[in-house]
């Protein structure tokens, strides 16, 4: 059983310690981010070649392509995030510490979110060039939609990657359990991006963005509550 750290500062300090460690590991290798970036780039190029979209079609499908490219690419990152901890039984050591597992989870989500954001910042301009995009709606809304959707993907993905950590063929299992749960967020993300790019005004009350935010809050809360159960499952 974990002993919950009652002091608020110490919980944040714990998160900060985990976060620093993960960032430092990535800073020294750049393995996860570069492989993910290249993978996402390949997906974008493949879709562009496979469909050879015209200008109007681009606007319609670009949101979906961007989301799906991020989704596929994140899987490799998410698997690596926990696989690192299995080397030298670090994960077992973490399980034995009295610290709250939720802090570990939260730090992992923050790190992964940061990495996926880097990839999106690099990928975004490339994407606009390849698809010749001229957004017709409120482009600034993308700055809300994309992080919200990414958060949904990363928070759930980090949780499920931890779940599949000690399973057989875990690399295969993660997308199998993550994608069905992620579907509503994907739907909301794709439709709001499409509305922004085409400017068709089909979502005047920003229902999809609200739904995405609700999804993030619900699943983040449940993940934080249940993470210790998953970490300590035996």
């Amino acid at each position: 059983m974990s002993i919950h750290v009652t002091h608020r500062e110490s919980w944040l300090a714990l998160v900060w310690t985990h976060l620093q460690k993960d960032l430092r590991i990535e800073w020294r290798s750049w393995q996860a981010v570069t492989s993910m970036l290249f993978y996402a780039l390949l997906v974008v190029v493949l879709f562009s070649i496979a469909f050879d979209p015209t200008l109007e079609v681009s606007r319609q499908i670009a949101g979906g392509v961007l989301c799906v490219a991020t989704m596929f690419a994140s899987v490799s990152l998410l698997n690596q995030a926990w696989a690192r901890e299995t080397r030298h039984q670090v994960i077992d050591a973490l399980r034995m510490t009295p610290a709250d597992g939720a802090a570990l989870f939260f730090a992992k989500v923050l790190t992964n979110f940061f990495f996926v954001c880097i990839v999106q910042v690099v990928l975004g301009p490339v994407f606009f060039i390849f698809y010749n995009l001229h957004p017709l709606g409120d482009t600034w809304l993308l700055a809300i939609v994309i992080p919200l959707g990414t958060w949904a993907l990363v928070a759930n993905g980090t949780f499920f990657a931890a779940m599949s950590l000690r399973c057989k063929s875990r690399d295969l299992l993660l997308p199998l359990i993550l994608f069905p749960i992620f579907l509503p967020a994907l739907l909301a993300m794709v439709l709001s991006v499409k509305t922004i790019l085409t400017g068709d005004g089909s979502d005047p009350h920003l229902l999809w963005i609200k739904m995405l935010a609700g999804y993030d809050i619900i699943f983040m809360t449940v993940s934080l509550l249940l993470f210790d159960t998953v970490l300590q499952a035996e």
Partner: peptide, 27 residues
């Protein structure tokens, strides 16, 4: 998941996934 996960931890993981699934459906 129940097929892939081995041992008694599988039951816990499956139960957690069931909770996530149940939350997903109304959304």
């Amino acid at each position: 998941l129940r097929k892939f996960a081995a041992g008694p931890q599988m039951q816990t993981l499956a139960a957690v996934l069931a909770v996530f699934g149940a939350l997903d459906v109304p959304i």
